[in-house]
Design a protein around this nucleic acid. Sequence first.
DNA 1: GAAGATTGAGACTTCAATCTTC
DNA 2: GAAGATTGAAGTCTCAATCTTC
Lengths: 171, 171
Amino acid sequence: MTRWLTEEQQVAWRGLAAVIHLLPNALEAALRDTGLSYYEYLVLAMLSEAPGRTLRMSELAGMTNASASRLSHVARRLEERGWLRREPCPEDGRATLALLTDAGHDRVVQAAPAHVESVQELVFDALTADQVAELEEICASLLARIAPEGALPQRLHRGTTASRRAGDAPA
Amino acid sequence: MTRWLTEEQQVAWRGLAAVIHLLPNALEAALRDTGLSYYEYLVLAMLSEAPGRTLRMSELAGMTNASASRLSHVARRLEERGWLRREPCPEDGRATLALLTDAGHDRVVQAAPAHVESVQELVFDALTADQVAELEEICASLLARIAPEGALPQRLHRGTTASRRAGDAPA
DNA sequence: GAAGATTGAGACTTCAATCTTC
DNA sequence: GAAGATTGAAGTCTCAATCTTC
């Protein structure tokens, strides 16, 4: 009793499938020169926005839609490169705090323009204002089904610490 | 002179970013029980639709938006499991033909319902008919920028060999 | 025992190098 | 030399197991 795709659905699905496959690649490619992967950039960017440039690992994992394991591996690599530090949380001995180092902050600030420009070129330059509004609603509807429960925490690239500093008032 | 994201763009972007990150995971999870990854399923499904259940490796790579290297590795694994065979192309000594075996065909037919149902649940059950139409146009616009050049070959899950057999007239 | 986090093994993808045929 | 394809190495992610603290 499978509900096969209609003609209309089929066209929409193959388009969406191609987008979710190709867009991540294109975003990675745009960050290539900065020496950061998209996920690494995301981690550093979230930290740059956080109060005290610090977040618990579990919070950071939730905000970036990643497993604790994935974040842990990435944090180790970022730590080795000197862009992130980890400390035990004073308030909860089980938790670990991730802190953005100055070098890490410099790195995000440096990488932000290239990333944001790629988002503009790859996504928004291709869409009308109406389409952007539609896309927003569509994504919200989709996420209601697939997001681990209201996990839409990312507030990237407008008014972020990194953005402000890089774009308006370089500290 | 970076074009930072507007408030509206920011909301749309964080939604889209979450979708392109989470949707692939959800699709993989839905296929978990079938013993196929999403990409493996795609490869076998494309072959099941092809005339003679055969395609050149280069064609198959293009249709699945993958590098030659990626496909080659996957083909080796699928071949080891007996679902795919490779033969030299008679017409061009450089090319290799990928053939779907009977066991491979059975596998796609078996996996198709679970996959299609997950697409229905994850995507179309969440959207109105209007939204589906909008999504279709939005994806087409986005792909015009990021697709390697009109690489929209996948015609999946309506009228495919695998689908027909599994849904209507089990062979 | 549950929550927070880390670790190592296994699997997959990318990248560069290589091989053969056109 | 270019096209089609494969290979091995390196990097990353997932999964299961583990450890510590609550």
